[in-house]
Amino acid sequence: MKVIEMKNVDKIYGTVQALKSLNLEVEKGEIMGFIGPNGAGKTTATRILLGLLQSDSGESKVFGLDAFENAFEIHKKVAYVPGDVTLWPNLTGGEFIDLLGSLRGGLNRDKKEYLIKLFDFDPTKRCRTYSKGNRQKVALIAALASEAELYILDEPTSGLDPLMEMNFQKCIREAKEEGKTVLLSSHILAEVEKLCDRVSIIRHGEIVETGSIDELRHLTRLSLEVIVEKDADKFSHPRIHDFNIVDNKLHFQVEGKDLNEVLSELNKYKIVSLISKPPTLEELFMHHYGDDLSA
């Protein structure tokens, strides 16, 4: 069953096209990573899913219901953590967590206490005194302590320290075990790589790649480190990239589809050892955004 379904969604702000025929699907019980740099359209997409913004065209469904028309019904089953958490300065963190929980239709008290301890959070302080990380904890605890079925998290850990980030990952895994669905928008790639079942990469308002990290790896280059018996300096092949030789070791990258062809050419030089490394998510990401950087 599809929990989130966006089809050909467009969103235009004045002259800026924020989303361009965006397609996104998230299955029940799945943790979906939603990655892309600042300004790629992640927040716009999540706000459309929450019915805070209306798309200009296309279809956005959550739990099979229209995201804008049925926002109220949907929100009963959704917990959201915004990227930039704004709180009322005079309320305490504890009051805010209770308020959001209650407006969402209920809060698991035990879970709230557990999360407050886990995140080492002081709920008695006024919100104006919290740092960015602590403001995020308020929203995270409120979301995770709710009985929601879908968590929409928009860069939830950008202000957390590494220890708290580990606790966050623990919570998300627990949520998955309970059968909950998570849409995790982030640009902390290591986090997405550790947590997510599938990843969608968004660029200029379009999804450029979707799939499990393994699937995505096949679509990109492998890094190879090879030692050959003879004439290492004579080796070359039109399908290899970033080629160099250090201490008689050949280093290069090759697309998955060209691997066979390159290996048979290498065989002529008698392979002594070969180490192949799968690309990290960061390399995948750079693969899609490389032109932006060089531009």
């Binding site: 209770d98 308020l99 407006l103 709920p123």
Partner: peptide, 23 residues
């Protein structure tokens, strides 16, 4: 120093009307 506040919200706060009253 800023006084510590309530750890949990008073039940009157927990509705849209309660929120507006509080603010």
């Amino acid at each position: 120093p800023d006084k510590s506040g309530r750890k949990d919200a008073h039940k009157n706060l927990l509705s849209p009307l309660g929120l507006w009253r509080n603010l």
